[in-house]
Amino acid sequence: MPSNDTVNILFIGDIVGKPGRNVVKAVLPKLIDHYNAELVIANGENAAGGFGITEKVAEELFSYGIDILTTGNHVWDKKETLPFIAKEPKILRPLNYPEGVPGTGSTTVKTKNNQIVAVVNVLGRIFMNVLDCPFRTTKEEIERLKKDTNLIIIDFHAEATSEKLAFAFYLDGKVSAIIGTHTHVQTADERILPKGTAYITDVGMTGPENSIIGFRETEVIEKFLTQMPKKFEVPATSAILSAVHIEINSSDGLARKIERISIRQF
């Protein structure tokens, strides 16, 4: 069982289509047992056919043991997302959307060991949609959340490594972990920053391994060759699960450990 002074959290990288959902179903229960995970967070913005998320797909992922779903720039790809995300606090859209956008960018949840953890979802601006400043918006939200908990996990959905690193050092010591998502390629730079925040530039993808960031190679290559629009499909191949395990000191909210996880399912 987890000790009272430690919180163990699993964060699963961007789930892509049915192959991603299937590998979560097959592997997640074992990971929860192995790491004594008290909370499971996953990025689900590509979980429905590779683009967006639906209520049905979200409920499927919750049934596999995921507690909170984060998203990113593909959050609105399915039209039916708008009404259900407004009423489902377990699904986050980026915090830095303008006021009036449905849904929420942060939430608090109780772990299995009755610890309160805050989860924040925020979108970068380099090579992405230009939203409100992720740095200032997130800092303000952290100050609000600190009234309830010092255990704060951030999904920073961004393209540029420089922006992710700058964001991480800006908030180092103020949050428990900053987990990068979006590029679908797991980076080998997981570490505890100088002031105690766990960090990885990109947690990676959970989906078809023999693909180009989750999509069939032929269409993606053809688009690069011709520069013409193509419909991308998620291939039904063997899958990979990418994640991190984060161990946090519950008294000060700072990270003790971050470990990369990469599991191939044949």
Rank of each mutant, 00 (worst) to 15 (best):
D148G: 15
Y35A: 09
G196P: 03
N129Y: 08
P102E: 11
M1G: 14
T54H: 05
M128W: 01
I126W: 00
K90L: 15
E45R: 08
T107P: 02
G49N: 08
D14A: 03
N249A: 14
N4T: 14
R93M: 06
V109D: 01
S176F: 14
N36K: 13
K146S: 15
E259C: 05
R21S: 12
A239D: 11
G72H: 01
M228H: 09
I200T: 13
V40Q: 08
F156T: 00
I221Q: 07
I200M: 00
I246P: 05
L145Y: 04
I12T: 05
K231I: 04
I200N: 01
T197K: 02
T54V: 12
L193C: 06
R256V: 11
T161I: 02
K30N: 14
E190C: 07
N96C: 10
I68P: 13
L95W: 04
R125N: 05
N113P: 07
P94V: 01
A118M: 13
D252L: 09
D132E: 13
N73T: 10
V7H: 07
G204W: 00
I261V: 14
I213P: 01
V175H: 02
A168E: 00
K79S: 15
P102C: 10
A236E: 14
K164L: 01
H157F: 10
S250A: 15
E159C: 00
L69N: 14
K231E: 11
N114R: 14
T206Q: 09
E38M: 11
N121Y: 12
I15E: 05
T107K: 04
T104D: 05
G13E: 11
L171S: 03
I126D: 04
S211T: 10
V244D: 04
F224V: 00
F215D: 03
Y35P: 07
H74V: 06
T138G: 10
R21H: 11
T218Y: 05
S250R: 14
N4D: 15
I85E: 02
R264N: 12
V244R: 12
A198Q: 06
A47N: 10
H184K: 08
V220D: 06
T181F: 02
S262E: 12
H157S: 01
P2R: 15
A239Q: 12
C133K: 08
E247N: 12
A168S: 13
Q186F: 04
E159G: 01
A198N: 09
I213F: 03
E159N: 01
S242F: 06
A118H: 10
D132S: 04
N249M: 13
K174W: 07
R144D: 11
K146M: 14
D155M: 09
H157V: 02
I212D: 04
G124L: 00
E80R: 06
L95D: 08
E219T: 10
A48I: 05
K195P: 03
A86N: 14
V185G: 02
P194Q: 08
I85R: 12
L10R: 13
G65C: 09
K223Q: 04
I261F: 04
K230M: 06
P83Q: 04
